[in-house]
Nucleic acid binder design. Sequence first.
DNA 1: CAGTGGTCTAGACCACAAT
DNA 2: TTGTGGTCTAGACCACTGG
Lengths: 264, 264
Amino acid sequence: MPKNQRSAPVYLQLARGLQRRIDAGELPAGTRLPSEPELSAEFGVNRLTVRQAMAELERAASIEVRRGVGTFVRPPVTRVSITVDPRSQRVDIGSTQSVPLDGGPGREPDFDGERIVAVRPGPSGRHDQEAAAHLRCPADELSRVDTVFLQGTAAWVVNSYWLLTARLPPDLGPSDSLGNVVRRLSEAMGITLEYDWRAFSAVGADVDDADTLGVPTGSPLLVREGVSCDATGAPVLYVRRRIRGESARFVLRFRDGAETGPCP
Amino acid sequence: MPKNQRSAPVYLQLARGLQRRIDAGELPAGTRLPSEPELSAEFGVNRLTVRQAMAELERAASIEVRRGVGTFVRPPVTRVSITVDPRSQRVDIGSTQSVPLDGGPGREPDFDGERIVAVRPGPSGRHDQEAAAHLRCPADELSRVDTVFLQGTAAWVVNSYWLLTARLPPDLGPSDSLGNVVRRLSEAMGITLEYDWRAFSAVGADVDDADTLGVPTGSPLLVREGVSCDATGAPVLYVRRRIRGESARFVLRFRDGAETGPCP
DNA sequence: CAGTGGTCTAGACCACAAT
DNA sequence: TTGTGGTCTAGACCACTGG
């Protein structure tokens, strides 16, 4: 319906054709597609062109490519819902959820929780400026703490905290693990943290996050960021969480009672 | 820091190298990168390898590739914030915002608003099952209304509504435009719609949405979906909005007063 | 081992934007 | 017209997975 000039590139035609067959149920979830050489021969195009089409579908999360094995039609995504009551403020939105990672059976979680991967005093990256603006202080007075939420060996959330270096607990270090880092920080600072604001947005994974999360660059991530403040309202902590797009969804409920239909 | 087996592919080394120089401010926003043949010669690799690296950075939204012109370092994203008061329920979260599209100067909006692009009675796609589950009715009794939010000629939101075909206003059709479609539907049904729930998640653009929004397949989209119900609490309308990731962010404020620091 | 997808090369033609 | 990025080919070697 939308754009339609001249003829679309071959790889797009191929991708759309396959996508259509997937949508129609003609290629149900789990189906193995023909191998790249086979498709290449079948459609009379170069293997690279086939690969380009496959890359489209993979980015659209329609197929899963397994090296050395084959490519398969993906099942529809199932997300974990993290429910938020819009009336009760200061609820800790989705801080300690345990989430079943997709990818099927056979995953034995050997560790669940938040793990610190880096503590960097001083400016050290792309988001320091924003953090400084949100916390209304110079960027060079801030430290950044990076953590991941693990389930088993796989990370499903990467997390960055910014706070004044002066407030950073000295005993905090990499490979320090387990438990709620926010609570840890809050106790170390002797402050009760309150929510100021939280925001939701979507970004593509940058090269680093993609690496940490084990997803391709540009993969959709759900970002939840915000500022926490002390009892006087002074901003103390800026948090920026990047969650694998397929993993979670935040839900706001507006009606009372146990209105539990087949909701999210 | 994370993964590090053997040596990374050339295209990744190249991409990371450039990304590092961008992050360091060595290649400020707006800088034009050398052309593909130039980079190809400079690093002694094939042009396709260079292109693969470029594709990585483009998916990471670090660079912008302009056909026939060149590739340029992107400025940091600036989002429009759509603020939500978590205490006031049933507020219409971000329904009628007008948003300045990125991409620089020279865009004269000739039309802003919601425009219907398709009205399809009966099952017609991938999300019909979910819609039916949310509305607790058979999928073949539902109709789907697709709309886009335009600014000028560019779409920044694609929207799908599901409701009982029996409730669909007969005078609703494609190229029907302007105004708030939800209000229109609500009036036609003679029902006051209330929020049941709304959820936020991130997905990659599928082939269709990518086409409509003019973004590459797999681009991060912020999804806001939910169910509206009538006064008795019966689910009536399921909405699924896909918003270009770079365009918007939803903000929840938890503190009272005019706490307007350099917030989101 | 054979088959799969992942990377890379060399070369070609095209559509597009600026001049 | 020139130079840019977009598509496509033919062929090669590799790393991984499974039996």
